[in-house]
Amino acid sequence: MTRSLAVVGKSLTRLGALEKVTGRSQYTGDLTLPGMLHAKILRSPHPHARIVSIDTCAAQALPGVAAVVTPRDVAPDTRLQPDRA
């Protein structure tokens, strides 16, 4: 590198800084889509356990609930594997 550098080595203002200080920067959590629904995960109270059965009927029947997914909704070969996730 013989020529002197004009841009590299300079403290250019961080991209997005203006958006960040004005609250305009959009993070994933700030996005809204029409008809968007909200999901939560039921977590096991046990550090190590196997699920014997899941009954989602009552949850499904709760007004406002659109869908419940369980491992049955995923083909076994695409389930989260211990070597991934």
Binding site: T13, R14, G16, A17, L18, E19, K20, V21, T22, Y27
Partner: peptide, 20 residues
């Protein structure tokens, strides 16, 4: 706000509105 831009008082920016 101008100072946070000029002095790079921002990284990911998530906390920035609160700090400002």
């Amino acid at each position: 706000q101008q100072s946070f831009i000029d002095h790079d008082g921002v990284q990911c920016g998530f906390c920035t509105p609160g700090f400002v």
